[in-house]
Design a protein around this nucleic acid. Structure first.
Lengths: 165, 165
DNA sequence: GATGAAACGATTACTCA
DNA sequence: TGAGTAATCGTTTCATC
């Protein structure tokens, strides 16, 4: 198992051998596989698999293991993206906005982006009526929001959590 | 444990009791907790936890368990959103575009959306140069793309996979 | 990186309310 | 029907090579 780190001031990343890459791919596809199953797929001993995983966890490469749930079964069938422009961009406003938006459970993702708008939000709710509620009572009740522009998801073509290394 | 399904033509969703909601929240936060740990947090027996989880898996509420990896450690520090407009919207073009885009490993998410553009893509690569490469050699080599508009992520304010029920 | 033993958790059958 | 107890089985973990 050969690792080395490349450090360039602000960030550092690992270099992975072929086995680690395959292991990460397998775990990102299904983390409930036993080390025995993984050892078969990787042609390794159970212990070797175990140690590689522990190392990847310790290095912070694997940050967490989670259950993914089907949004249709959770009555969250409505997905929208909201562009947001702030009125002003003082430190205060920005920090306050970011904190409040991050606390909204309907907001799955929030990014500060380049371009015409300041932020892009991914919002998940049950239906259009719930989205209207969210906009009126939660999002636009945050102060300092200048304008918003919403796009509704008609169809989810692809959605993965797996990063290919 | 009381479940019932609400069916409205095209979709159906479960109604969850308070314990299931908490259980789903816990598993979405960390799926490596043992049933014993979960049983403590939920004031239930290990078996009761086990059976609730199995039921949620069988119903398809829990669709998968995955490892999440830190993109910084994987040298994938550059995140962008791409708007895409197709030249034409014939069935053929749409199906072909969607299939080809879904096959690109840089594309984490792809949505057919309302508004000025047809699609919104979330793209993850190592840096701006890799993004340029991706645009020139992969994305725009897909036929039928009319125009694109890219937004670069300056800062990730929030990113979660957990849906709150 | 492999082997094998000890520890631990998941799973199932059984029991009780 | 729904939850708890206890035995079994398989996996994780770790010391040793």
């Amino acid at each position: 198992m050969s690792y080395f780190c490349v450090s360039l001031e602000k960030f550092s990343f690992m270099n992975f051998d072929a086995i680690d890459k395959k292991l990460l791919k397998l775990l990102q596809a299904n983390s409930k596989q036993t080390n025995k199953e993984l050892s078969n797929k990787l042609n390794l001993s159970v212990t070797a698999v175990y140690e590689r995983i522990k190392k990847l966890e310790k290095e912070g490469v694997i940050s967490n293991y989670v259950a993914l749930i089907q949004k249709e079964k959770a009555n969250k069938n409505f997905l929208a993206f909201c562009h947001i422009k702030l009125v002003q961009h003082t430190q205060d406003y920005v920090i306050k906005f970011e904190r409040e938006v991050a606390n909204l459970e309907e907001v799955m993702e929030c990014y500060h982006i380049s371009g015409d708008y300041d932020y892009l939000l991914k919002v998940i709710v049950s239906d259009m009526e719930a989205f209207r509620e969210f906009m009126v009572n939660k999002l636009t009740s945050i102060n300092h929001i200048g304008s918003t522009h919403s796009m509704f998801v008609i169809n989810e073509v692809k959605h993965t959590t797996a990063i290919m290394i």
